[in-house]
C-alpha cells in the first residue's frame, strides 16, 4: 500500500469520525437525560411523560 493511499484511508476515517461525533454527543446527552429521568420521583416522571406525549401535536395547536 502506498503512503498516499494510507493518508486517504486515515483522512476518510477521521472524516467519518467527525461525522459521527455529533451523533455520539447527542447519544450521550440522551443517555444522560434518560439516566436523570429514571432517578426522578414518580410525580416528576409523570409530569414529563404527560408533556412529552403532547409534543407531536404542538405545531398543530400553534396553528389552531
Amino acid at each position: 500500500m502506498k503512503i498516499g493511499e494510507i493518508k486517504d484511508i486515515s483522512a476518510g476515517a477521521i472524516g467519518g469520525l467527525k461525522r459521527l461525533l455529533p451523533l455520539a454527543v447527542l447519544a450521550a446527552i440522551l443517555a444522560g437525560l434518560a439516566f436523570k429521568y429514571q432517578r426522578l420521583d414518580l410525580s416528576k416522571r409523570r409530569f414529563i411523560k404527560h408533556l412529552a406525549r403532547q409534543l407531536p401535536y404542538l405545531p398543530g395547536r400553534y396553528y389552531a
Binding site: 403532547q54 401535536y57 405545531p59 398543530g60 395547536r61 400553534y62 396553528y63 389552531a64
Partner: peptide, 25 residues
Amino acid sequence: ARTLYLEVIGEEHLPWLARRGIRSC
C-alpha cells in the same frame, strides 16, 4: 373551541395542521 371547529364550523374549513391541533386538545 373543539365543538366550534369540529362541529359548528366543520373540519372542511380547517387547514390540516390546525385540524390535527384541535383534535389533539
